[in-house]
């Protein structure tokens, strides 16, 4: 019974489900460090999904799909940055506007470009390649876990490491964090905090477009209206859990993927779907309580220290 539930395909399933979350969350944590909590990721993912399909369909190349998605990501990142950084608008309102805009735009373009409503699939859409490492074939466990994933799965793992190094080991990463924490300090050393915020916003657009392209070209090869299906919001939750630390955020996204995968499997075991669909949210609440409690303890300790100093 348990071996049917917890086996290697569960890990595979977890990785597949978590990758779009990981990619989007990596983008969102960059803006989070720059002091912007981006809830527009949902819309950004959707745009990436759509333009990925457009590029792949018309140029018969998945690379062109990704490129077009990235261009869309850059543009929407600039628009987001323009409103939030340049005009100082409320980041939540702009985020919601982007979500509504993306949903409306993709529906509209789906009709005007492909002449269909709701869903578009075609054999002419070229999916992203899947990778396998020849050496791993002989090791059963590693073969199942690491082989035969869509290319963005590996890219997402590399990005976790790169963004960690960027944020904590390079001067630019420090600037980015300073632009969120203490922009005045950044200005005194002659770096524009505006520029750093813009950069983070554009990077977020690009990473969300990766997540979208992965969804429509890597994971599936089709587009349906609102196919991002709240993944952008779950990515926000992963960022908050992970304290915007790339590695912890990655772990949080994997956790969401894991419980999603586990839920589907438990249904086959006869557990009612109402219960299994509740699991990710129950885990969210429990985790939030733990995170907040730890945070409070830290603040408390900090205060005691301060008091002790006097």
């Amino acid at each position: 019974m348990l071996s049917q539930l917890f086996n290697l395909t569960l890990i595979q399933h977890t990785i597949r489900t978590a990758t779009p979350l990981v990619l989007a969350a990596l983008g969102g944590l960059l803006t989070e460090h720059a002091g912007i909590l981006n809830i527009g990721m949902e819309g950004m993912i959707l745009l990436g999904s759509f333009f990925g399909i457009v590029g792949s369909y018309f140029f018969s190349s998945s690379l062109m799909g990704v490129l077009l998605a990235v261009v869309a990501g850059i543009i929407i990142g600039i628009i987001y940055g323009f409103f939030v950084v340049e005009l100082g608008s409320d980041e939540f309102i702009i985020g919601i506007a982007i979500n509504i805009f993306a949903s409306g735009l993709t529906v509209f373009l789906l009709r005007s470009i492909f002449g269909v409503k709701g869903a578009f699939s075609s054999p002419d859409i070229v999916p992203l390649p899947k990778l396998s490492f020849p050496g791993l074939d002989n090791i059963p466990i590693l073969n199942v876990i690491f082989n035969n994933h869509s290319i963005f799965v590996y890219i997402s793992w590399i990005l976790v490491a790169l963004i960690y190094i960027y944020l904590y080991k390079t001067p630019k990463g420090i600037w980015l964090r300073a632009s969120g924490e203490y922009p005045e300090a950044l200005e005194t050393v002659g770096v524009s905090s505006k520029k750093m915020k813009y950069t983070s916003s554009i990077a977020c657009g690009v990473l969300c477009s990766f997540a979208g392209a992965h969804l429509s070209l890597g994971y599936l090869t089709l587009f349906t209206e609102n196919m991002s299906a709240d993944r952008g919001f779950i990515a926000v939750a992963a960022i908050i859990f992970g304290g915007a630390n790339p590695i912890k955020t990655f772990a949080a996204a994997m956790m969401f993927g894991f419980f999603d995968a586990l839920g589907i499997r438990m249904q086959v075991m006869g557990v009612p779907s109402q219960f299994t669909q509740m699991i990710p949210y129950v885990v969210t609440i429990i985790a939030l309580v733990i995170v907040t409690k730890n945070h409070m303890n830290k603040i408390k300790k900090g205060k005691e220290k301060e008091e002790g100093a006097y």
Binding site: H13, R16, T17, P20, A119, L215, Y219, L220, L222, T224, E225, N226, M227, A229, D260, A261, I264, R265, Q267, V268, S273, Q277
Partner: peptide, 20 residues
């Protein structure tokens, strides 16, 4: 064997459920 995806608009979840 039956799995409820819990959503009518999430093809990714539909795929995962069917794969299972």
């Amino acid at each position: 064997e039956t799995i409820y995806a819990g959503d009518f608009e999430d093809p990714a979840k539909g795929k995962e459920s069917a794969l299972a």
